[in-house]
Design a protein around this nucleic acid. Structure first.
Lengths: 346, 346
DNA sequence: ATCGTTAAGGAAAACGATTTCCATTAGCTT
DNA sequence: AAGCTAATGGAAATCGTTTTCCTTAACGAT
């Protein structure tokens, strides 16, 4: 069905040279080629509209030019931005980025790694924290070892239980920053809405929140810490729980924006005004945070940048370049909008 | 650097057979293989943990197992969902999905097609409507022809200026549905906020809106049609324009959700209550639509489904399967939330 | 005993590139 | 004139598979 495409031999014939010479022209090889011959070959390439077959090149070079990315949910703008950042860099070096969306499904995750192995991916990026299931960890660890022993780079983003190089996103710092901001505005009665226990992200942010309070010797009250799941509905549930059980609260930090939005929604629904009655902040700066009413104060995770840096790291490592930024760090920033009321100016 | 990986020859040696036989076992070939031999080969495969090299297979089969997807913006949940749907199907058949994020940049778009050609992609999906730039159209058309003559499938999603098979998303129907809903609730003074003129989507939805009004012989007033750009800020601008220039409006349909959210935001900001003072609807049902206060009534584009159907179409076409749904149709649905007030019960 | 058929397996070519040798020529040096 | 080097080009092996022929052996039919 598929037509035989134009090969280096066709070019060679047309230019009246051997395939060897064509290859040398193609790769700017050190082996000298007469400039006249070179011109003839180039002309033939152009006339035939020849493009070297990557599969053949990959086979002989033992390079697939494939970089795999495993994400939980591509619809999460968080991951999408990262992939975009990576792709921006990687495409320049003619690498292919191959995405697997696993929906936190263990089997899909394993299948993804399996395929990446079969396709001899040169690098694999594991994003989105940890699944703690024992069986999964063992199988996955096996695959990872194999990939590594095949010479693939395996890179983790945020905490992973696997023994691989990981790039830190600054989750703990993010939580500390946003909490400090609240403290600086005079808030002392601050609730915290946690993420799902299974994720590394959850733990990291929770650490950051605690550090901020501890640094000012503000006690952490168990009742002010409520469980969440990183979803909008989870935020609403948490807000109801807070409203039922607690009085005297002046602010709440939700450990991600979706939940913060849910909290704001529920508060408004119960007749509270934001930020006048209660301040709310999140982490992540997702698009919807800007659309909220009032717009949500949050921490921007420059996730596109992170993607770019990951891309650069991979390209450099794959290319065995000498020196480069081996452990990229992203710059977090506070996005101050209108969901926080200052308690100072009273 | 990269280690030579285990090949079919290693397996053959270990099992005491020829590579031919190993290949036959691997592919369940019609050529008979003694069951005892077969067992030996399988054992060797397992012991060596052998996985056939896709590059080599692709080279000889003239198959890359690569499907390219070109999107404008992966962070747009719209595209992300589609990709997820495609991937869900495609992964089962061991195809690789290769995403290019072009940010509506002509050069990036061309570069993407270029790479896909070099990598011998078996199929290419072009999403996200049309860029009308003349130069771009010509170059792109050339690439597309080439891909096709190489035997690749090229598929468009929504209108394209290229002569390729396209899958319709139901944009016009979506606009008609949401407008009809407003009409059924008794609204007659309805404003419409358009998208960027350059996109096919814009035109299709605009058609749908007109059809709905025309069908009921309701005149379309020029002043009620305002320009937009599919962004949140664009929605806010449009809302201000509407507020300045027009009185007597009871509803506005924004041609996508982002703008609808912007409109709602600005109205609230100007002291209007939604839906009591003004009803607002959108198209798309993006995640943020649910988070809005009040939650936005809109049309859900079952875009994940569309992705699944595209995936199935591609797999079937690539596999030359006999009969399948050649022109998938997605099911639109009205998501009735709280941003519309009924004028009937007065 | 010979023939035909089928089962079973292997050798070698092929896919489209790259790379390692080797051959030829020209230009200098002495 | 002999010898050396550098420039230029090609032949053939190679990467890891699949596939097209071939060969051999076994077995039943005649």
């Amino acid at each position: 069905m598929t037509v035989r495409s134009i090969s280096i031999k066709d070019v060679a014939r047309r230019a009246g040279v051997s395939p060897t010479t064509v290859s040398r022209v193609l790769n700017n090889s050190a082996h000298p080629v007469n400039s006249k011959t070179r011109r003839r070959v180039k002309a033939a390439i152009a006339e035939l509209n020849f493009h070297p077959n990557r599969l053949a090149q990959g086979l002989i070079n033992n390079k697939s030019h494939l970089i795999g990315v495993i994400v939980h949910d591509l619809s999460d703008p968080y991951f999408a931005e990262m992939v975009k950042g990576m792709e921006r860099v990687i495409i320049k070096y003619d690498y292919i980025v191959n995405i697997y969306n696993t929906s936190r499904d263990v089997d899909k995750e394993l299948k993804a790694v399996d395929l990446l192995r079969a396709n001899r991916a040169e690098a694999v990026v594991l994003t989105g924290g940890t699944l703690l299931d024992q069986h999964y960890r063992e199988e996955m660890a096996g695959y990872i070892k194999e990939l590594q022993s095949n010479g693939s780079i395996v890179l983790g983003v945020t905490a992973h239980p696997f023994n691989i190089k990981s790039i830190e996103l600054g989750n703990s710092l993010a939580a500390r920053l946003i909490t400090n901001y609240l403290l600086e505005q005079g808030h002392r009665a601050i609730a915290y809405i946690n993420g799902p226990a299974i994720l590394g992200t959850t733990n990291e942010r929770w650490q950051g929140f605690q550090e901020a309070l501890l640094a000012r010797k503000i006690p952490i009250r168990d009742k002010w810490i409520v469980a969440g799941d990183f979803s909008f509905e989870g935020g609403r549930r948490a807000a109801r729980q807070l409203l039922d059980e607690i009085t005297g609260l002046t602010a709440v930090v939700a450990s991600n924006d979706e939940m913060a939005l849910g909290v704001m929604w529920e508060f408004k629904n119960q007749g509270l005004a934001i930020p006048d009655d209660l301040s709310v902040v999140g982490i992540g700066n997702i698009p919807a945070a800007k659309y909220a009413y009032p717009p949500l104060t949050t921490i921007a995770l420059p996730i596109f940048d992170l993607g770019v840096q990951i891309g650069e790291y991979l390209i450099n490592t794959l290319g065995d370049k000498g020196s480069f930024n081996d452990q990229p760090e992203v710059q977090l920033s506070l996005v101050e909008r209108d969901s926080v009321r200052s308690l100072l100016e009273v």
